[in-house]
Design a protein around this nucleic acid. Structure first.
Lengths: 369, 369
DNA sequence: CTGTTAGCGCTTTCAT
DNA sequence: ATGAAAGCGCTAACAG
């Protein structure tokens, strides 16, 4: 009971075979095979002695661990914890240990973790959370030095990732890629477009958008997809009604508060200049936005309707039910895991599906457009 | 750029010292010290070469990794992801890597993970999630074989944990202990008692309880604390109004549905036999319960008031706001991490604090009791 | 098919 | 204070 861990050589000795044979019997070496009876004897002894291999030793000998790194921005955020659930499930199935890094949005921590993974020779890394948009696509409004900073951050991450891969590690990103790394892509633009169309069909004509930070690719794509479709539908959103916030619950709260303030606060009577419906680019922001609406003394959806994106399961019980675009995060994260582990990239672009709920009821008297 | 990882001996050679010296310079060996100038030369070379140690090799040589294991039931559950956030934060601060296991409630996976941690010589393990109550405290209604099963499960876990500790690993549990392992204890009974009193003060007289599975310690303590206080207050809950469910959102939903059914479903008019307020033993269940109330065509709190326990931050935006008992999970999980790492157990029993919100408004016309 | 023998990268006696 | 050398537990050539 108080035994120091049993080693392979103990098993070998006990079974009366050489260390090498024991090793081969146990892990079933690719090149060499072991005689039936010997293998059984070894296996039996191993079981009897309650042997299990030392991962560090194996890692060292093989030059490769059985660890899978998962990088998220904030594990407490339900979007990321949902992903973590999918990844751990898949990893477990593959016999891998998952090591978790919650970077709290700090780019340097992300890079440090990737570097650690390389040293540690992790099998693969999954990167969740939005990457930055390429600088050339950024709106001109961003200060040049901020752009420079972003570029160097992105550069650092990309080069860390590159050397990780050169060392034989697998990588996959969720959402959209870094450079041309493998990615389980989510078609944010068309999902958001479909949502815009659906809301328009419900009779909404005045739209607002709560978007993420400038430069966050996912946020940008969703916003663009939404706005473009609105334009095509002939009822573009006012610039004034597109407001930026952090990609978090608090960001959504702040952005909605801001939006409401711009259009005149806390007025229950329908104001002609207030958007009828506001699209928050993710569910977590949407929930914050709903709270802001309530705190302003208004009601969802009577005064302002709200829609989100992702369909986070943990948030299914908010009330009124949140209209959103469903992304099958479980599948996405399992797919990403397999992809990082070397599965074929079967042209993975995940499409979302619009889910209409009570936060965006049909407009009673659709405005003529 | 495409370099194989730099090794310590490369650094040593480059700096013109022996391997041993380089090692001592870099990690600052306890027993031996290194001459100032040599140390600096080594450190400088290491930096220049971008050296960083191979964790597996260190683990092997030292007989100890720098990994911290975290075991949760379900990482997608906001209760556990909140804990995970606290643990990763603390671990990061201590320079430790966290390896995550989401056991999906399966006891054997828990045991397997602990065993793995032992082989891998993890520094410590944090166990979140409720342990089983000791069999002798179980209500007699449980089938003997189930009790036996529980006992053997508990035994297996405890013995795995024991050998882990004998191997030098640290352990801490969150919530309540396994055996007499270090624990950051949450005073569930008195928190629930305080809640009962608060609700009683608000004028509630007919109480229901949605409790977790029989045998789950946390659930049992909260239930007992609540019920006992109610008894002391002179308005005990009916047995019929105490219903069991899983410790999850769906469990809360099912239990509430069950409760509502027993007392006559979907009747908006106040039924004298329906509890005025229902205490779900955790927030996640409470949220499910609220959904069940709505799906039954009733309203919270008008038809049934609801209270939970934990005050999960992610759930703060449910509406109406959920009355609950606030547990500072961030602090709890950081404390647990430090405890597992060997900090003094400063008599850690965390007290919860009742937080009253809109899900349990003051009763208009308090029933005379 | 099996056994012998080098290491993997690092820490740590043990000499010097 | 420094260096040489012996492992840690396991795998993978390399012989037999």
């Amino acid at each position: 009971m108080s035994d120091a861990p049993v080693t392979l050589s103990q098993v070998a000795r006990e079974a009366g075979v050489s260390l090498a044979t024991a090793s081969r019997a146990i892990n079933g070496s690719a090149t060499r095979s072991v005689r039936q009876d010997l293998r059984e004897r070894v296996l039996e002894t191993a079981r009897r002695l309650d042997y299990s291999p030392d991962p560090s030793a194996q890692a060292m000998a093989r030059g490769r661990t059985s660890a899978l790194g998962l990088v998220v921005h904030d594990i407490a955020d339900p979007y990321f914890s949902t992903i973590a659930a999918g990844v751990t499930r898949a990893a477990e199935r593959e016999g891998l240990i998952v090591t978790l890094a919650s970077t709290e949005q700090r780019r340097d921590r992300e890079v440090a973790f990737v570097e650690l993974a390389r040293r540690q020779r992790s099998r693969a890394i999954i990167l969740a959370g939005s990457r930055l948009v390429p600088p050339e696509d950024l709106p001109g409004t961003i200060p040049a030095e901020a752009v420079t900073q972003m570029e160097s951050d992105a550069k650092a991450l990309e080069s860390a990732l590159t050397s990780f891969r050169e060392g034989g590690g697998g990588v996959a990103t969720i959402g959209q890629g870094v450079g041309d790394l493998p990615v389980v892509e989510i078609d944010n633009a068309s999902g958001a477009g479909a949502l815009a169309r659906a809301l328009h069909d419900l009779g909404y004509r005045r739209f607002g958008v709560l978007t993420g930070p400038l430069g966050l690719r996912t946020a940008a794509d969703r916003t663009t997809g939404f706005l473009d479709t609105l334009g095509a539908l002939g009822c573009p959103a006012l610039d004034r009604d597109v407001v930026h916030g952090n990609f978090t619950r608090d960001g959504g709260y702040a952005a909605m508060t801001d939006l409401l303030t711009r259009t005149g606060t806390a007025t229950a009577e329908p104001r002609p200049d207030r958007p009828e419906v506001v699209f928050a680019v993710n569910d977590v922001m949407a929930v914050g936005a709903m709270a802001a609406v309530r705190d302003a003394g208004l009601r969802v959806p009577d005064d302002v309707a709200v829609a989100g994106f992702d369909d986070i399961h943990t948030l299914r019980d908010v009330s009124p039910g949140l209209t959103t675009v469903r992304i099958p995060l479980d599948e996405v994260s399992e797919a990403a895991t397999m992809l990082a582990l070397g599965a074929e990239a079967s042209g993975t672009v995940v499409q979302g599906e619009v889910v209409l709920r009570d936060s965006t009821p049909r407009r009673q008297s659709p405005a003529r457009s």
